[in-house]
Design a protein around this nucleic acid. Structure first.
Lengths: 183, 183
DNA sequence: TTGATCATGTAAGGGGTTACATGATTTA
DNA sequence: TAAATCATGTAACCCCTTACATGATCAA
């Protein structure tokens, strides 16, 4: 949907594909997942289209790295994305598909067990988000509202994840009450 | 991710691809979006794999329709899906990607405008969900907790959408407060 | 010297979208 | 008779994942 845009945004400073992957696994892991096998072709494509330039980094130590930086054209493209309307994209939540078909199992026992497992999965996500929150708090002074702009915006997205998961857990509990009352 | 599974679940009663599309646009439109150009090949594939059987419906009036029904094998496959753990799948929310890069615009004016537009989009989604809710209430007696099992489960998924969007709006408001305070 | 990490990729395949092609029937 | 709706599909093209291939360096 917009991995290329996001890569443009992450290339505020020049970086290699490998480093970008580490950002995805570190700072952005609550927000976006991306595989190296997707990142490398995406970077090449962005370069072919003139949004990035690259050069081999002299391998003083370790293997050679290809370092990408935004071109002026790339920055224009990024600004255009940031000036556009929010990308809402359709949500396809597999667990809701399963739940919607759950009448097929007869009775509500399976539905209740499913919702309990789901709540536990959300709880696990929440724990991870809160670990990220705690680590950022430890690392960065001024947390969270006096952070520098890039980290402040990242924190807004972290809060989005936390409120989303909390709401999902509330919904699970409400649903469990309704399901057990039907039994 | 699981359109084929969902199709198996929707084929509780035999139906054509066109009818299934209408279910997606009607009852399930809050839950899943699917195009005919994806549905038809998916049905063919499910038939090739032995999960569905089909026959041409005699076209008493209108063009010929191909009607699919679940085989015993298809029902087993469906039950297996419903017995599996909830499919959590990674979330890739384009608007969070944009927000995370928004420091590039300098200042917070663009961020505030973006969050306001986002909140309005969520409000629009909420209105649609509530229209669905109201229409179901009008059509179905016993709404919502004394509904037959299939509609009850569909209502659980509708509630999931409503709580999700409400939480998103709360997050937007919280974020707007934080952003304007920084100005 | 063996395995972990650094670093870059290709290949195959699933899932999804938009645009296009075809033709019958119903309604204005 | 022209347009909307019914009905089924194909083609081209993204996006993404898993598995595989390759080779260098570093630490145990």
């Amino acid at each position: 949907m917009s991995l290329p845009h996001l890569l443009l945004g992450m290339l505020d400073a020049p970086a290699s594909g490998y480093e970008l992957k580490q950002m995805f696994d570190g700072t952005l892991r609550h927000l976006w997942a991306a595989e190296l096998s997707q990142i490398y072709p995406a970077l090449k494509r962005l370069e072919d289209d003139g949004y990035l330039s690259s050069r081999e980094s002299p391998p003083a130590k370790g293997p050679a790295r290809r370092v990408y930086r935004r071109t002026a054209r790339g920055t224009r493209r990024l600004r255009q994305w940031l000036g556009a309307s929010p990308e809402m994209g359709p949500l396809r939540l597999g667990y809701l598909g399963q739940l919607c078909c759950m009448a097929e199992t007869g009775g509500c026992e399976r539905t209740a067990a499913f919702l309990e497992e789901l709540r536990d999965l959300f709880r696990g996500q929440l724990v991870k988000y809160e670990q990220v929150d705690a680590e950022w708090f430890r690392l960065h002074p001024g947390y969270p509202d006096a952070l520098p702009p890039d980290l402040f915006h990242a924190h807004l997205t972290l809060r989005a994840g936390i409120t989303r998961v909390e709401a999902a857990m509330t919904w699970c509990d409400e649903s469990l009450r309704r399901v057990t009352k039907r039994t």
